[in-house]
């Protein structure tokens, strides 16, 4: 069930990238897509349990811990993703000077030889 929601999110983001005309909307769609991917990592991590994996907090043997590895990995991906988002938004700002509507088809027309 949750998995289906995650994939719907990814798909929505992907379709948004294709069908939205505005550059800003495309960037946001990509963010939605990456939210879906992050959600999927968290979901997979929680397959083995929901507890926070900290050693020594309570009697540690019989608790069902969430798998820390996918979470650690996705943290890296989140940081990378958000730095790329920031970079793209700066680009969009720059492009907005000469293409105020930010329609990708116009930007593309103006900038391909």
């Amino acid at each position: 069930m949750l998995e289906a929601f995650v994939f719907i999110t990814v798909l929505c983001g992907f379709l948004g990238i294709i069908f939205k005309q505005n550059l800003l909307m495309k960037i946001i769609s990509m963010d939605i897509m990456s939210t879906g991917v992050i959600g999927y990592y968290v979901l997979i991590a929680s397959r083995s349990g929901l507890q926070t994996p900290i050693i020594g907090s309570t009697n540690s043997d019989d608790l069902a811990y969430a798998d820390p590895v996918p979470q650690a990995v996705i943290l890296t991906a989140i940081v990378i993703g958000f730095s790329i988002q920031a970079l793209m938004l700066v680009c969009a700002m720059k492009l907005a000077k000469n293409n105020p509507t930010l329609e990708t088809s116009f930007i593309e027309e103006n900038n391909t030889p």
Partner: peptide, 16 residues
Amino acid sequence: DRSIWVGLRYLFISNT
């Protein structure tokens, strides 16, 4: 403008 657009296009595709 052109180099920014070409770069943005590259970044977008590779990130997706």
